[in-house]
Amino acid sequence: MKTSNSNSGNYFPENKEDNEVLDPARLIELFRKIEKKQTVTKRIVAICNLVLFIIYVAIASNQTGKIAAGYHLCGLGFVAGAVYLYLRYRPLPSSAYTLPIMDYLRKTEKRLRYFTGVDYLILIPILVTIGIGGGLILTDRLLHYTDRQGLITIIWTVFFIGLCVFGFFAGRKNWRRDNGSIHEAIKQTLVKMNGDGSL
């Protein structure tokens, strides 16, 4: 389990007969470090989103019609993204300390997953909102130069979906580098300790 990241490494006790089980104490320390890192990233991205929201709403106030609606939708998407980030990456409460070790591991495993089902349910509507908003702005602007609205819409849709797909895979690559090995270690431990192969 070797990667180049500082969060990676050997999470299992060395030279042990039962070395598929990670050291929960080391995990707690590592998870706290990851939480701190996630909090910093979350704050930066959330602030950027809020700044974009303010800019877009300010621009929308000087516009009318579809273009104003586009800016409003983008602003709404950005602020929803900021709220999502805040809720998704809020640190585990201090009372998590009183949880059984296995429950703590289950929580950290869930927290360290790249995307959960709930994330998709929240993120897809946010992205659709931003996509529609961006589409409205772009088509309105480009209609000054061409009247082929259908083509512009298709190009924008393909571009935006491509951007999202690229972001998904690029993000997953980063996630694998930063948290992939520790997440895998927790999963293995849960399976091993549960004995029945379930998480």
Partner: peptide
């Protein structure tokens, strides 16, 4: 040579903590 989970199980066993409580403490 035991992993920390098993060390904890042994410690609680030696402390004569009942199995049901060991389960509640560890989450197993």
């Amino acid at each position: 040579s035991l992993n920390p989970f098993d060390k904890t199980l042994v410690a609680l066993y030696l402390e004569e903590v009942p199995y049901i409580e060991i389960a509640q403490v560890t989450g197993l």
